[in-house]
Design a protein around this nucleic acid. Structure first.
Lengths: 97, 97
DNA sequence: ACATTAATTGGTCATTTAGCCAAATAGTTT
DNA sequence: AAACTATTTGGCTAAATGACCAATTAATGT
């Protein structure tokens, strides 16, 4: 269904969550790493991570005291390639009417 | 900046907007076509379209009484390929703690 | 000029989202 | 078992979002 798809996209449609996803392209990170990276309250980051996990974008694994998050799919690069093309595509903000 | 990127993603992170984007992969459509497709008030659809255009995802062109919208980039297929992989990727909703 | 059609804009309202803080949970170390 | 560290959960509030309706703008046809 299109709702699950939209949920996946929504899970990446936030500056902090996008930053998290990009950082995880280089390998797993635990919540406190991501908290430092994002610069928000740990509880806020944790909620972002839960959202992303529930959407199917992230997986997690607990080892010791830490919980390590990873990307659920290695296709994020191609996803971002398209996003960047759109984001940098000229000043298309022109209206036509 | 990461905010522009997130804006692009956000422009696709809604079931109606995703449907609009997918429909436009087959070529331009005017607002009333899209209104029928989405099944919402025309003003609602118009606002979705404005949002998508301002994010850089769509372009528009007025001809006669109609305004035709098109995708700003043909990369949407590869974008969706990744989204679908994530959206259908097993029951990864498992938690780890 | 007037009516008609396509689309956008402004207003309002209910819902969702994002952030912080405080409290709870779970594993570790002593 | 008590203190410590990492993470999640619950509660709250402010801001953003999405939907509809009514009013406006713009192009066309009469």
């Amino acid at each position: 269904m299109s709702n699950k798809r939209a949920g996946v996209i929504k899970a990446l449609a936030h500056p902090s969550r996008l930053l998290i996803a990009e950082s995880l392209m280089n390998g797993e990170l635990c919540v406190c790493d991501l908290k430092d990276l994002v610069g928000a309250d740990m509880s806020t980051v944790s909620k972002h991570l839960t959202l992303m996990r529930e959407a199917g974008v992230l997986n997690c694994e607990k080892r010791g005291l830490n919980i390590y998050y990873t990307l659920a799919c290695d296709c994020l690069g191609e996803f971002l390639r398209c996003v960047d093309k759109l984001a940098t595509g000229g000043t298309k903000t022109k209206r036509c009417c």
